[in-house]
Design a protein around this nucleic acid. Structure first.
Length: 290
DNA sequence: ACCTCGACCTGGGCGC
DNA sequence: TGCGCCCAGGTCGAGG
């Protein structure tokens, strides 16, 4: 689920609430997603620290604490929601599948594995159905990009057509697989890669090293275009995604090719093809993408 | 050094 | 209604 626009949507939605809050207690119901250090030390290490700011590199969320970085990756189904018990439930806005209210009232259920509790009785809940998410706690001296082997975030100044072209030249794998490599570009996933490749007219199976300089220029623009659109639409909600307040995104309504194989191409009307590229299901147009 | 593949999980949708 | 199969936004590590 969560690619760069979804993770950024979560970050932005939590920004009004978390910075300045002090972590009073940590409730761990299922330590499955906690990587390092051992989860038993979390209450001791996190308790009493306050949250300075919230940052993001690619799909990685970074809680900047006084003495640590709390690194949270949402995996496929991770959700972070802020609960304020003083806010009213809004019964008319329940998620059609999960039943979760679209307010600040994310109730603890069997998938809510970790909660950070604050002195004002509000809390940050981590819910993750498939448990592919990961929590890590590292020292503030850590270089997060280096530590997690993350490449360039496309929404930063390090990302430009020249960087893209040079990076694409280095691999003979399919261009789609290269774009999904988080140590090259941090933040793209299956949805936005398919969308960007369609927008720039490039087949996902083309050899990465065979993408021309001119195509890289178009592709760089398309990547930014689809990511910004996703962000503007509050992320793509296929099943589970919601922001920190429980709101679904609506970018799924703007996807042109992802998951639409068999349907007519929005540009030429010939049916979109489906194939497996880099181990991921891909949707593309044999006419519009070369 | 590179790449492909399966594993890690749970749940939804579909065909029978 | 129920079972079994396939599929899903993402990494990771083992092995070729």
């Amino acid at each position: 689920m969560p690619e760069l626009p979804e993770v950024e949507t979560v970050r932005l939605s939590l920004l009004p609430y978390l910075p300045g809050k002090t972590i009073q207690s940590v409730v761990i119901r299922d330590p499955h997603v906690i990587q390092e250090p051992n989860f038993e030390r979390y209450p001791e290490l996190l308790g009493g620290q306050s949250i300075t700011s919230l940052e993001r590199i690619g799909k990685q969320l970074i809680f900047v604490l006084e003495e640590s970085y709390l690194l949270i990756h949402l995996g496929m189904t991770g959700q972070l929601t802020y609960r304020d018990p003083n806010r009213q439930d809004t019964k008319f806005h329940r998620h059609h599948k999960t039943g979760l209210q679209r307010t600040l009232q994310h109730p603890v259920d069997k998938h809510t594995h970790i909660s950070l509790e604050f002195p004002d009785s509000t809390a940050l809940h981590y819910r993750d159905i498939r448990k592919f998410g990961k929590w890590r706690l590292v020292d503030r001296s850590t270089n997060v990009s280096q530590h997690l082997k993350l490449g360039v975030d496309p929404l930063t100044s390090g990302f430009d057509p020249e960087f893209l072209w040079k990076g694409l030249k280095k691999s003979k794998r399919p261009v789609k697989a290269r774009l999904l490599d988080q140590s090259f570009i941090a933040g793209l996933g299956n949805i936005y890669v398919d969308e960007a490749l369609f927008d720039s007219g490039i087949r996902p199976g083309r050899g990465s090293h065979r993408i021309t300089r001119k195509e890289s220029l178009a592709l760089a623009g398309s990547i930014l275009k689809v990511l910004r659109l996703g962000l503007k639409n509050g992320g793509t909600t296929l099943q589970d995604f919601q922001d920190g307040e429980g709101q679904s995104g609506y970018n799924q309504e703007c996807l042109l090719v992802y998951g639409r194989y068999g349907e007519p191409c929005p540009r030429c009307k010939k049916n979109l093809r489906r194939s497996e590229v880099g181990g991921r299901t891909s949707s593309w147009c044999a006419i519009c993408q070369k």
